[in-house]
Design a protein around this nucleic acid. Sequence first.
DNA 1: CAATGACATGTCAAGATTGACATATAGACG
DNA 2: CGTCTATATGTCAATCTTGACATGTCATTG
Lengths: 171, 171
Amino acid sequence: MSLRHALIGVLADEPRTGYGLLKHFEQSLAYAWPASHSQIYPELARLLAKGLIRQTGAGPRGARVYEATPDGLDEVCRWLRTEPDRRVRSDAALRIFFLWLLDPGEAAVFLAAERDRFRTLLAELERIEAEEEPRTPKQRAYRVALVGGLLTLRARIEWAEWALREVEAWR
Amino acid sequence: MSLRHALIGVLADEPRTGYGLLKHFEQSLAYAWPASHSQIYPELARLLAKGLIRQTGAGPRGARVYEATPDGLDEVCRWLRTEPDRRVRSDAALRIFFLWLLDPGEAAVFLAAERDRFRTLLAELERIEAEEEPRTPKQRAYRVALVGGLLTLRARIEWAEWALREVEAWR
DNA sequence: CAATGACATGTCAAGATTGACATATAGACG
DNA sequence: CGTCTATATGTCAATCTTGACATGTCATTG
């Protein structure tokens, strides 16, 4: 599973609480792998039991601070060397195959919503891009991921605009 | 869930067997929503019980041919008008965030493999694109999805090439 | 000082997904 | 006639994911 490795991987950079991991996922990793607190907390308990992470301290409100152990780091690196699962799941992309079941006007509404969502997301990623120059190895890797998002979104926007013109012709 | 709607949606075009649906998913829908036979067959039984599809005949080797009922078609259209789930899951994309845990040489190997996979897939999609001119509404919708894949893959290839130059500088 | 919102952790049932196990037939080829 | 492959359907346990339920704390603001 990817979640467990992602959790250790984030903790390999710096110690964090479960809640801190949750927020970090929401901000960046969720673009590739969404995770909710109801998944993260039990998974942390499992990783702790397996010795892949350890608790290094505690914060206010019962917060528990974890960090990756050497075993955990080994495990992440091993994972990174295995073949990635290239399957991708996207409900929004799936729906495109069925746009012909709607009338062209409704299909256009859908595509326009997609385009707008892409634009919003792109603006968000561009804001993050402008925020700070990457300095550490970790920041440079995150920047590589970010640029991947930027290029993909620009392509998706271009596609949505083309697709809108296309369904226009369906009327 | 998306799978049940996708199954009805495919059956709205023409009657198919469970196996036919499986192969159809593998060829096209799997790019957006992978599904295995162990998911498809039980789901078809549920859709049948709910009256969203019906069996119209039988083929060799116990094959069962299904088609969408009017209720099923309604259900798909209702689904298409709801907000899509914009969450996307990609193990390969997630790994980018952790490339800094590998040495630059290994990161480059990963990115080169990604680039190659994208190129192979692009060639495959370009072959499908050249295959036949879309004529029916359904074919036109599939073409819209296909062009989405083409534009996205070209952007991903551009990104992978840039990322490779980037990690080159990490050495 | 009371209310609110962000912080912080947890559980659980329902549903979705995977990968393995299981079985059988039709057609093609040697 | 035997073998192999593609066709064809099914089940099941393990795992993953979701969304709801549940609880409590800290800091800010009115």
